[in-house]
């Protein structure tokens, strides 16, 4: 372990949390404008977190206290770890070589799992229903998500994210496989709101049905940790999509020959812009233009429709590669 790695492992999570909250702010603002409202200032999520951290943390009487308190930390830790696997523009991922796409898949699952366990541990009927729904939803969207990752493994013969990021996927596949990759992209876009518990798949936290579900009993610091992990997860998910499907660097498009700091800065900003576009498309626009599905409807959508799209994409890649 070099000093550089240690620096990265501190700086990346901090940067990730900051960016996650900024993106959440932008998301809220754009969503408000889409519905003819003014919306909160972009720094509102920071205030929210600050306020939550100041508030009293209440543990319900019939909750399993240690489990109830541990799960927010687990969710936050796994989302921070997730950040360390994402190559940031042309920067290499800090944990490069220690894990790959499969680890990312499990880290994403771990957060949902932590929320579900926290919900079960809080001993409220609303949380239990929410946690049950989250488990069902997780089982439904894991399959398309895994299919996408297998598709990439087929193309690159590797699970490493840095390898994938260094060569754009579109440049090494045949036209037929490229269409398959497009289908995988569509499948991943549909999974994104479910993974992030956003409308139309925020079934586990349905406000009007079960009063925020899994989060119903959480307050204060615990809720702040869930809030932060949610923000980070949103950023990370969009970043993964960019890395998988749009890894083009700005210098390669424009034919620039930048070096040193300028290269890093320009590429980082370009990367953030790409992430923002994906975030707005996959999260903001979708969550504003749909209502909430029922859990059985959502399951059917993932098991039948999205799965079909993803498997078709996989088959095309298999034939095309």
């Amino acid at each position: 372990m070099t000093p550089e790695t240690i620096f990265y492992s501190v700086a990346f999570p901090l940067l990730g949390v900051f960016l996650g909250l900024v993106y959440k702010g932008i998301d809220r603002r754009i969503s408000a404008r889409l519905t003819s409202r003014i919306g909160p200032p972009i720094r509102q999520p920071f205030w929210d977190v600050g306020k939550l951290l100041l508030k009293e943390t209440i543990v319900p009487k019939n909750a399993i206290a240690w489990l109830f308190n541990a799960m927010p930390i687990l969710a936050f830790a796994s989302s921070l770890t997730l950040l360390l696997y994402i190559p940031f523009g042309v920067l290499k991922a800090p944990l490069e070589g220690y894990g790959d796409l499969v680890v990312i898949l499990y880290l994403l699952t771990l957060q949902s799992l932590a929320m579900a366990i926290g919900g079960f541990a809080s001993g409220s009927p609303f949380s239990s229903v929410g946690a049950q729904r989250e488990m069902v939803l997780m089982m439904s969207y894991e399959m398309p998500l895994a299919t996408v990752i297998v598709g990439f493994a087929l193309i690159y013969r590797s699970f490493s994210l840095t390898t994938i990021a260094s060569t754009p996927v579109w440049s090494i596949v045949s036209p037929l496989a490229a269409f398959g990759v497009l289908l995988l992209f569509v499948a991943l876009l549909t999974v994104t709101p479910a993974e992030l518990a956003k409308l139309p798949f925020d079934i586990a936290e349905a406000e009007t049905e079960i009063a925020e579900g899994m989060l119903a009993e959480y307050s204060g610091r615990n809720l702040a940790l869930f809030y932060l992990s949610d923000a980070v997860r949103g950023f990370a998910m969009a970043a993964i999509e960019v890395v998988l499907f749009f890894p083009f660097t700005l210098s390669s498009i424009l034919g620039l020959s930048l070096t040193g700091f300028a290269l890093y800065a320009v590429e980082a900003l370009w990367f953030l812009l790409k992430v923002l576009i994906i975030y707005l498309l996959a999260v903001t626009l979708v969550r504003t233009s749909f209502g909430r599905f029922k859990i059985d409807q959502a399951s059917r959508i993932f098991w039948v429709h999205v799965n079909l799209v993803a498997l078709l994409g996989l088959a095309l890649i298999w034939v095309g590669v």
């Binding site: 889409l34 519905t35 003819s36 409202r37 409308l199 139309p200 925020d202 349905a206 406000e207 009007t208 504003t288 233009s289 749909f290 209502g291 909430r292």
Partner: peptide, 15 residues
């Protein structure tokens, strides 16, 4: 619309 989480329609109809 709000009951099914469709807040966009809530804002639009009330507008």
């Amino acid at each position: 619309a709000h009951e099914m989480g469709f807040d966009t329609l809530l804002f639009w109809t009330w507008k």
